[in-house]
Amino acid sequence: MRTRRAILEAAALVFEEHGYDTAKLSDIVKIANVTKGALYFHFESKEGLAQAVIDAQNEAQPQMLPQQFKAQEFVDIGMVFSHQLRHDALMRASTRLTLDHAGRGLDRVTPYQTWIELHVPLLEEAQRRGELLPNVDPRVPARLIVGAYAGLNTMSYTLGLDMDVQVSELYTHVMPGVVVPAVAIRLDTAPGRGARALYGPQGAHECRHSCAGGVSPREGA
């Protein structure tokens, strides 16, 4: 399993930098410090390896702290993923491959479906609790948020924007049209929310990426 993980992490670095078409298996085995035989033992092809990287985003869903409002937990899904994108090359490569049109045999449908289905139950529970505006269908904002998030990810990558800030602005502008005013004014949609959802009000965590709430490993020791 350690060899497989090393290959996945090396593949993430290469796919993130080069995309699918120009990524080379020779670069991946060099970074992972394994033989091509070891790579093919775990992954039958370049496409199979790329699919494993894509699937990683569905498997890496960290445990978030429970919140007073289910609408806040809905927001936290996206803010935590934004936090992961800053810290985890595997997540960045996974999203790039999902948005990349190369590699026609890759399954890019499941990630979208998985993320939508992750959001819907939270809004359904929020609806039962009276947090949503009347006539809001929980599936609609769930689908729109996932689609908008994908677009923001592409735009942020292309223009060099801070994804955490872009996602914060997305929720700040969208949520008042989804939840009742008494809930909307109490939602935390500010940048750094992902860290706060994972680590508590201050969002303090060991970090080498200068994100909100992060402290260097030396300072946090």
Rank of each mutant, 00 (worst) to 15 (best):
M64Q: 09
L161V: 00
A190F: 09
V109M: 11
Q202P: 04
E59S: 09
A197L: 03
H87R: 15
Y149K: 07
D164M: 06
Q113V: 11
I31V: 10
A142C: 14
A197D: 02
A10G: 08
H205F: 06
A10Q: 06
L152Q: 13
T22L: 14
H101C: 01
A190H: 08
G19L: 05
G220C: 01
S94Q: 08
I185T: 12
H18F: 14
C207N: 03
T35H: 07
V14K: 08
P138W: 00
G78Y: 04
G200Y: 13
A10R: 12
T95H: 07
V167W: 05
K46N: 14
Y171C: 05
G48Q: 08
A204I: 12
T158W: 10
E125T: 10
A12S: 14
L161E: 09
N58T: 12
T98R: 11
T110Y: 08
A60L: 13
K46P: 11
K24H: 15
E47M: 14
H101W: 02
V178R: 02
M64F: 02
E206H: 02
Q84P: 02
F69H: 15
L106N: 10
F69C: 13
I31P: 04
G103E: 12
P134W: 09
S210W: 14
R86V: 08
A10H: 13
A182I: 02
R208P: 00
V80C: 01
V29W: 07
N153P: 00
I54C: 02
K70F: 05
A212H: 15
A148Q: 14
G78F: 07
A56R: 11
D107W: 13
